[in-house]
């Protein structure tokens, strides 16, 4: 059934639009302004056009950070989305077990991000941390402060631990919102568990999955605090992701122009990927049999 057209719906959207635009538009314009100027002092600006954009795009350090970032975000999505769906499917539905599970599940989400990094910094240490000691005890060589792969895997494990609950909670609430008659119909048809999942639950989860994929993509693509606290980007550059590169540019070298140019490029990359994910998921939904 097509949605009816009604332009008065704008009135319902207007408050949200105003609140968001208030915080969004002026800072964005300011950053665009920085990106095309060389700021020499409070009152001295020189217009430099696209110079900063060209300078930033040619930086080989950026290319490395971008590659690592893409690899990291794809790994995050590939693990957290299926794991989150699976958890949501098997979580208890009612009773005390459901309450306890939901609260425990959500705990990692509630820890401030700098503390997350701090816990793991000790937790994963080979000499004094539980995880490090346990892995070394299994006879595997593991040292996240010295080995690039170990560091990368530690950041990934930390992210999976931290953020899979978000996907699981969204999917769980999405599953709860499926009306009972759908399941009754499936039972009458003698549908298998897989068929029920594939043709009833998954299509109905499309809305929450879209937001889960987009959120996890955006946030993992802009991950900053946790790896910064955990590894400081090292060893070498193994866990230097894009936003750490950006912060180095903005704060470390105090190059506001190039940093602003890079922010805008960064923003456009996230926007582009998000738009592709969004469109793909909308299409997947439309081609689904209704």
């Amino acid at each position: 059934m097509e949605k009816p057209t009604n332009n008065r719906a704008w009135l319902l959207v207007l408050p949200v639009l105003l609140v968001v635009a208030f915080s969004a538009v002026i800072p964005l314009m300011t950053v665009v302004n920085y990106s095309v100027q060389d700021i020499l002092g409070p009152e001295q600006h020189v217009f430099v056009g696209t110079e900063w954009f060209r300078k930033v795009l040619r930086d080989p350090e950026l290319h490395g950070a971008l590659r690592r970032q893409l690899g990291f975000s794809l790994a995050v999505l590939a693990i957290e989305i299926p794991l989150g769906i699976a958890l949501a499917l098997v979580l208890p539905m009612r009773g005390r077990a459901a309450s306890v599970s939901l609260v425990v599940l959500a705990l990692p989400l509630l820890i401030p991000w700098n503390v997350v990094g701090t816990i793991w910094q000790i937790f994963a240490r080979g000499d004094i941390g539980l995880l490090g000691v346990a892995i070394n005890g299994l006879g595997l060589k593991y040292n996240y402060t010295a080995d690039a792969l170990d560091a990368w895997l530690t950041v990934l494990a930390m992210d999976v631990w931290h953020w899979t609950p978000l996907v699981a909670l969204l999917c769980y609430a999405g599953l709860r919102a499926i009306p009972e008659p759908f399941y009754q119909a499936a039972r009458i048809d003698g549908a298998s568990a897989w068929a029920t999942f594939r043709y009833i639950q998954l299509p109905r989860l499309r809305g929450v999955l879209t937001i889960a994929v987009l959120l996890r993509f955006m946030d993992s693509f802009m991950i900053y605090t946790e790896p910064f606290v955990l590894t400081g980007g090292g060893p070498g550059n193994a866990t230097t992701f894009l936003s750490q590169y950006l912060t180095r540019l903005a704060v470390g070298q105090f190059d506001l122009g190039p940093a602003a140019a890079f922010s805008l490029i960064y923003f456009l990359v996230v926007l582009l990927f998000s738009y592709v994910f969004y469109t793909a998921m909308q299409h997947a939904g439309r081609s689904e049999a209704r």
């Binding site: 900053y224 602003a260 922010s263």
Partner: peptide, 8 residues
């Protein structure tokens, strides 16, 4: 949500 915070 997509703007990296450092410069903003």
């Amino acid at each position: 949500r997509m703007a990296p915070p450092a410069v903003f």
